[in-house]
Design a protein around this nucleic acid. Structure first.
Lengths: 118, 118
DNA sequence: ACCTTTTGCTATGCCATACATAGTATGCGT
DNA sequence: ACGCATACTATGTATGGCATAGCAAAAGGT
């Protein structure tokens, strides 16, 4: 199930930074991997990812370099900076907190008595 | 732990609608309850909540009416509409999906080998 | 040889929305 | 009378997802 806009806002950058915490990666690859490794949840277009990467780089959370890929084509590879790594840690905590909050409110409770008449 | 801006974007309206699915409630009360019932996670100011309520009402997800409260003061009470109830159900699914996605990527995995040097 | 598809990046602009800030008004305690 | 908690309204700014568009190189088919 694809995520709607406003949720992607919170989760997108975290997901990207998490991916980059494992390995150096280029844009197109990130789009593909995010979609496949999350079963479509983090499916996003290039027009979403690239500006996001520029944004993260502007904040010093990721860093990029040009490099010739396996197929001979020029690619821009991104990797997480130390600052980005710390930000990722903070985000993890935020997510844990958010999930706890939703649970405390009962939003994600499975058997919820709410019934939508009509 | 208070939620940061971009996460509140996705979760705020869902949390509010969830609260209203139980009972009719007025703005000030919502702010108080959200903060206390979520252990501070969904702490938000009035300047965040009221525009959010106007927004939700504009979309037909909640409906309001003026009513004198217990203390004699005029208050604006909000309740969830049928449409809002269906939207809430959809949001629940989105959250479940998102949490699954984060889990699939390993973002929320407790023992994560990422270490931020420096 | 030519064309289409896939891969890969860049740029611009719209729109939604969290939140800061500011202003208004009522009831209660002292 | 004064301050404080309660309760709502209005405005402006900053952020960032995503649509749209364009460019270009490599791969594969016919």
């Amino acid at each position: 199930m694809k995520l709607e806009r406003e949720m992607m806002r919170g989760a997108g950058p975290t997901a990207v930074m998490h991916l980059l915490s494992g390995d150096e990666m280029y844009g197109y690859e990130i789009v593909e991997r995010l979609a496949s490794q999350s079963a479509g949840v983090f499916e996003m277009g290039q027009s979403t990812l690239y500006p996001m990467l520029y944004n993260l780089e502007g904040k010093g959370l990721v860093k990029s370099r040009e490099k010739k890929g396996d197929n001979g084509r020029k690619r821009r590879y991104y990797r997480l900076t130390a600052k980005g790594c710390r930000k990722l840690e903070a985000d993890r905590k935020q997510w844990t907190s958010l999930i706890d909050g939703l649970s405390a409110l009962g939003v994600t409770r499975v058997s919820n008595p709410v019934s939508c008449l009509s």
